[in-house]
Design a protein around this nucleic acid. Structure first.
Lengths: 123, 123
DNA sequence: AAGCGTTATATTTTTATAAATATAACGCTT
DNA sequence: AAGCGTTATATTTATAAAAATATAACGCTT
């Protein structure tokens, strides 16, 4: 997945979209990246280690996501061939895609002003 | 200042734009609000208390901002009539305005997809 | 039935962030 | 020169977030 930080020398603009649902963080940049990697790897654990994140944290993020959405975004099985695994649901794919579109749209929409603002900063 | 959180029942989308400069947070939602309130109140302390933030923290945010930009965003005097005070520089006003424009642009650009994504969430 | 790689879960420890506390300095006003 | 309200700064304490550690369970494979 692409980085969510846009550099210019040591100057960077971070755009973070966070969705909250009654005090819980339903979705955000970390969860979006995690979904993407679960899709790629077919495993919560592998996705976690690619993000240099503990399995426990990744699993906990998945729990929160699944709880906040009407339908789960990730389905996991344990036991079985390969020990188990995880995959995205159709809802999971939709949510990931919409979120990524929002990130890109946000980036495009801010670029002009960001170029102005950047000039005011030390390099 | 307007809130940076856009509600729909208990569901909310937070859009945070953060500008970093060599490991430091040069600008973000908190600093933007602080600037606005310093402008309104003419005082770092009063701005801080309106944000329910300690003076020390507010002052430290101002220090960081001033350090990261080519020219300071806030000028403060201590002693004198009223004990002193603070005001925005022209650069400060420009930075605040550009940041607010970016926030608004980002919101507009994400609204359509956000309305879609929202439907996938529990209410 | 033993082994494997994974998911599932609780508990503890560490780390980073913010808050709280305390004190000094400044320069006008009276 | 004493008092005032503010800025300026260091140090300590508290809080929250993340990481680390540990253990169990699951169901296929052999």
């Amino acid at each position: 997945m692409k980085k969510k930080t846009y550099f210019s020398g040591s100057i960077a603009l971070q755009i973070r979209l966070r969705i909250t649902l009654k005090r819980e963080i339903a979705f955000g940049p970390g969860k979006a990246e995690l979904l993407q990697l679960v899709d790629e790897t077919g495993s919560i654990g592998k996705a976690a280690s690619r993000m240099k994140m503990s399995y426990m944290r990744a699993w906990s993020l998945v729990q929160t996501m699944n709880r906040c959405f009407k339908e789960p975004l990730v389905l996991a099985t344990h036991g079985g061939q390969g020990g188990g695994g995880a995959e995205l649901t159709e809802t999971g794919r939709k949510a990931a895609a919409l979120y990524q579109r929002m990130e890109k749209a946000s980036l495009r929409a801010t670029t002009a002003d960001w170029n102005q603002l950047r000039r005011l900063l030390r390099s």
